[in-house]
Amino acid sequence: MLWSGTYLRPPGALSEKQLKARCVSCGQCAAVCNFRAVEMTPDGLFGPETPKIYARKNPCRLCMRCSDICPTDALRKVEQDNARMGMAVIDTRRCVDYQERSNTICWTCFNICPLRGRAIILKYGYAPVITDQCQGCGVCAFVCLVSAVTIVPERMR
């Protein structure tokens, strides 16, 4: 309520408004998450706790257990392909694969992506590019050695 921003939400969340309307802070999503990636923190100062994911700290692996268990459909039951948490953005000034005359082949994000070969493809065979298949789970942002990836929580695609 007070000072609430936009956060990366677990898979299956609708708009920020709908998620807040439906979430009853029961914490079952956090309880079943295999990787302890879902954190329940208060919205603003005294607001109810809602599930958030901090990708750089502990990203979502798209195991989809949270959206299966949510009793109020704040997180709807969806397939991996339809998680729609957000979108990864690669900062090409930082990404080593984009640097001219660099002899480094990294592809860490490409190799780790749960939707490998679909959400991240290698343009020209070497430069990682995010496609519209990206669900915004944040694994790439977590593994990137030079912090070149940012997740934009943009669910209303």
Binding site: V24, S25, C26, G27, Q28, A31, V32, P71, T72
Partner: peptide, 22 residues
């Protein structure tokens, strides 16, 4: 899992009626 706002036991969930109404 869950708390007394919404609790689930083996997939069957029980919920605070006022929370549901809201």
């Amino acid at each position: 899992s869950g708390n007394l706002l919404s609790f689930s036991a083996g997939g069957f969930s029980v919920m605070d009626p006022l929370a549901a109404l809201q």
